[in-house]
Design a protein around this nucleic acid. Sequence first.
DNA 1: ATAAAAACTTTACGCGCGTCAAATTTTTCC
DNA 2: GGAAAAATTTGACGCGCGTAAAGTTTTTAT
Lengths: 382, 382
Amino acid sequence: MKPVVLRSFCDKGPAVDFFVARKEYVKSGKIATVRIRRLESMTKIRNMEEFAAVSGLSRPTVSKYFHDPDSVRATTRARIEEALERFDYRPNIYAVNQNRKLTKNIGIVVPYLADPFFAEIARYLEQSCIAAGYRPSLFSSHGEHKLENEILDSLRSLKPAGVLLAPLGRASDRSAIEKFCENVPTVLFDSNLEGLGAAFIGSDNFSFVSQTVEYMTRTGEPPSFFEMRTPANPNANKRRKAYIEVMERLGFEPHVVKIDGEGWAFEEIGRKGAAKVLGRRELKTNSVLCSNDRLAIGFLSACYEMGIRVGRREDCALRVASNDNHPFSRFTCPSLTTAAHDYDNVAGRSVETLFELIENGGKLGNRTETLFPARLVLRESA
Amino acid sequence: MKPVVLRSFCDKGPAVDFFVARKEYVKSGKIATVRIRRLESMTKIRNMEEFAAVSGLSRPTVSKYFHDPDSVRATTRARIEEALERFDYRPNIYAVNQNRKLTKNIGIVVPYLADPFFAEIARYLEQSCIAAGYRPSLFSSHGEHKLENEILDSLRSLKPAGVLLAPLGRASDRSAIEKFCENVPTVLFDSNLEGLGAAFIGSDNFSFVSQTVEYMTRTGEPPSFFEMRTPANPNANKRRKAYIEVMERLGFEPHVVKIDGEGWAFEEIGRKGAAKVLGRRELKTNSVLCSNDRLAIGFLSACYEMGIRVGRREDCALRVASNDNHPFSRFTCPSLTTAAHDYDNVAGRSVETLFELIENGGKLGNRTETLFPARLVLRESA
DNA sequence: ATAAAAACTTTACGCGCGTCAAATTTTTCC
DNA sequence: GGAAAAATTTGACGCGCGTAAAGTTTTTAT
């Protein structure tokens, strides 16, 4: 038997003054065991070097294990996992990512996280990424293009394998996003910026509006369209256009009601706008299609306050429908008839496309735009 | 004049075959300028070394600048900032953090980001951190303690200067959080775990309930208390206890109505529970205090569907109040009377405390628990 | 049992940056 | 103008890890 080779591996810190047997640990029992116990009780593992030492392996082997546990021998793997239980060491993710050419990071950026719609879709995206073995990082632009740009800068440092980006839209700094997309595999979702990113996945705004308009005209008066004068999101413009187009196709005169307001407090904007419009009797129809659910929530709130009965029943004065199927639209009074995003498909296809993009080394063929149709959700309000 | 010293600084990549004059750039015009232009048009700055070269400075000086722009001479600073405009280089944040002993990272962890309450408070916290020159990273546990633990592990790698943690509460893995707090300066908020973290900042649940109960008894019948049977959040228990205590102190018999339901879909749980309770006429009072606003939103929705008029007016059958001042409570029908969190103070004090903790090297005196009182928001529902 | 294959160890370098001490330059001040 | 002070440069090391080549050990196949 060879002599017991004791090898120093800590050259500073609390573990400065003792040693640990490495491969000899297996063969030459006692001494090494004692030393290791002593280590075990005294210090925490600070890096992979130390962890490799206590598991009696070399650092490259341990590194290999963390990259892919099946890439090492079964006995080796067992040894590492045993040590893992005793020491609960984890590689420093950021150091790992700095060195790996392909990281498992994925950036998710949404324009406004306090909006439950984005919160919900972000949750779905995060979980899909985790399920696929990636590490998502979530960012919210909070409605500010300056912050959006800073997030993109942070993301560069993260060296993400890919990014799922729902841009602010009109407020976005197009050239900044363009540059970013040149360097990082990016899939846009929810809000399209023409030509940017490897692909866009979103909802078909035309499908939203055509379904709600057709439903409302079929079952009653054709609706007016209720929206913000200066919408933050480009989807809003598409919805207005779709409304006008569908109305004209059906032979009705479109009525677009534009209300004032800036920012992301859509409910309050909708409430005030509705109060104004209803108070002045500017509404020419007894049915209203809101550009999005958050405006509709405010609209319904105003109606309630003014004692206007909303719903599809005969004793109601007004019907209100909307678009998005916001998580709370089920709980408005009355519950909101709305065109639902195909959340699952938008989110699912977004991550699928991104994974495909990543596997192809960051390049896909032509830039594709995938639009999922809406699903009409009939509730009480229209 | 000295000869022009041409110095190589790129030893690989697209810039492999040319040179850039460094300090001689200033003195000896043409040649150097040409070289730099050539570089400028051909390559992107990949690291601080290259950036230092094109700005004609040494890397340590540039590093110093990024740490504190005022720590270098004004002329030096101007030179760097000039180069910055031409090349838009930024240090890799994660590499920076790996090496700095004190990073500017702050971790923010909330239990469930799809809850607008947390989304709102997270937004406030993020912006406070940014304003103070820190870099916040936001994480959501999505209601799962497993995910909460993984987030804490990720945070260790981030080497954060401090962490703002709103734990899941009862579902949290106490020992994991305890270990984490030993290593990382952590301030708990919203949901307290006794003894953990350097401080706790939250709302005074007693103050919520006492105000709503007193208001309701003063202006009508004393309320029943409506809550989930197995609440996820420890605040719920405190609220129930406070309700019972206040009711008894005022000489009324407490009525606690417990409804079934698991998870974080509080609105739906509240709606179903309310429908059941109201349908069976199990409610012994004509006024109800909901444990939180999300339950109340569901409750009001059920009332509307059942044709029960809610409000404080005489023609109403039921009064409903609640706690939290959820961002949407303004828009329920009727608008919700509720006890408001002191958002600004809770968030503000949380970050203040954390900054203080960070400045003190991670140690404060005794662990403090700061509770901000609620503010009663009178609206239409009670 | 023996050779080939597989797994592991050693050694060494790189990532992008912080940081420190010593040497050099520039600035400031009298 | 000269010396002291301030700023910068150089050179070197460290962070925690990935990765590659070459050599050694273990496993598998024959």
